[in-house]
Simulated assay, not measured.
Amino acid sequence: MNDKTAELRDIFVETTGEESVTESQSDSRGSLSSTADDATVAERLAELVTAMRERYDFASSLSDADLRRVVRGFFDPDAVGADADSWSSAADAALAESLSADVDADEVFRARMDLHLVADADRAAPFSFDRLRSLLQQRSAEAVDDDAVAAELASGADAKSDADAASDANTDLDAETVRRYRRVAESDLASRQVNHRFRDAFSDLLTDADLSARLAEDARRDGLEEATEDIETDVSL
């Protein structure tokens, strides 16, 4: 063992409290955890979905069983060929096909919003999404008129900047389009109000949470690349 290998090993052991790098370190992000008992995962997932249903007024008509399948599908890249970073309407449709009869992509979308499972693609609106969020914060949920919001966004009225007004002006918007993105913005706001507690709990439960792998990855980001650049990849710690 050369000096750099010894130095890296000492840092790793001090950081993780473990003597070796576990095999799960090579697992891709988003793979279902192999360390948690399936029954325990299922029980905890059911508790989280129930807690959210009791706390929020769900728009989705899906059963709790299907809601749990939506959560699993969102965090399992193998389920529909997409993950939280690459999710799309096509992924909603693919997941809908695996659920109970008569479930379509729109229903899966509504379920995701109820469960705070917003993907980056959901925010790709044909207008300033930040401005929509600002307009919603100025109104109570009961007072939102999607037609009125669509008119404001299309006209650029009350935009915070000329850039926002220019991007929204003359945009052909209807209430249905605004309603979809309003659900996204409201889900974001609701998740933020609880510090993303439910989404983080789902992620921790259903993705690889091995502590050694996480701390080792953090250590690499903190500058261990330089310490390891001359070490052969097959060196055993």
Results as ranks from 00 to 15, higher is better:
Phe198Asp: 11
Phe12Asn: 05
Ser212Glu: 15
Glu7Val: 07
Val108Thr: 07
Glu176Tyr: 02
Val144Arg: 11
Ala227Cys: 00
Glu226Gly: 06
Asp230Asn: 13
Ala175Ile: 12
Val184Thr: 14
Thr35Asp: 14
Val118Arg: 06
Ala93Pro: 12
Asp120Val: 10
Asp122Arg: 03
Glu14Leu: 13
Arg192Met: 07
Thr15Tyr: 12
Glu107Arg: 13
Asp120Glu: 15
Leu132Pro: 11
Ala165Arg: 15
Asp158Lys: 09
Ala94Pro: 11
Ala159His: 12
Ser98Asp: 10
Gly156Ser: 05
Val80Pro: 09
Ala143Asp: 13
Asn170Ala: 10
Asp234Trp: 10
Ile231Met: 07
Ala124Cys: 02
Ser26Glu: 10
Ser98Tyr: 08
Asp204Tyr: 05
Phe198Ser: 03
Thr5Lys: 10
Ala169Leu: 04
Asp174Cys: 03
Ile231Ser: 10
Glu107Thr: 15
Ile231Leu: 15
Ala154Ser: 15
Leu211Ser: 09
Asp83Ala: 00
Asp162His: 05
Ala154Asp: 06
Ala213Thr: 06
Ala201Ser: 14
Ser128Pro: 04
Ala79Lys: 14
Arg182Met: 04
Glu152His: 01
Leu8Asn: 08
Ala143His: 02
Met1Val: 08
Ser128Lys: 07
Leu132Lys: 05
Ala59Arg: 15
Ala46Ser: 15
Asp66Arg: 03
Tyr56Pro: 03
Asn195Gln: 11
Val144His: 12
Ala36Gly: 02
Phe75Ala: 01
Asp130Lys: 14
Thr233Ser: 10
Ala124Ser: 09
Ser134Lys: 08
Ser191Ala: 14
Trp87Asn: 09
Gly223Pro: 01
Ala79Thr: 15
Ser33His: 08
Asp92Gln: 06
Ala169Phe: 12
Ala166Cys: 01
Leu211Glu: 14
Phe198Ala: 05
Ala216Gly: 03
Glu107Tyr: 08
Leu8Tyr: 13
Ala93Gly: 11
Leu132Gly: 06
Ala219Val: 06
Ala151Asp: 07
Phe202Asp: 01
Gly223Ile: 06
Met52Ile: 12
Ala65Thr: 15
Arg68Trp: 00
Ser63His: 03
Ser187Asp: 07
Ala216Arg: 14
Ser128Phe: 12
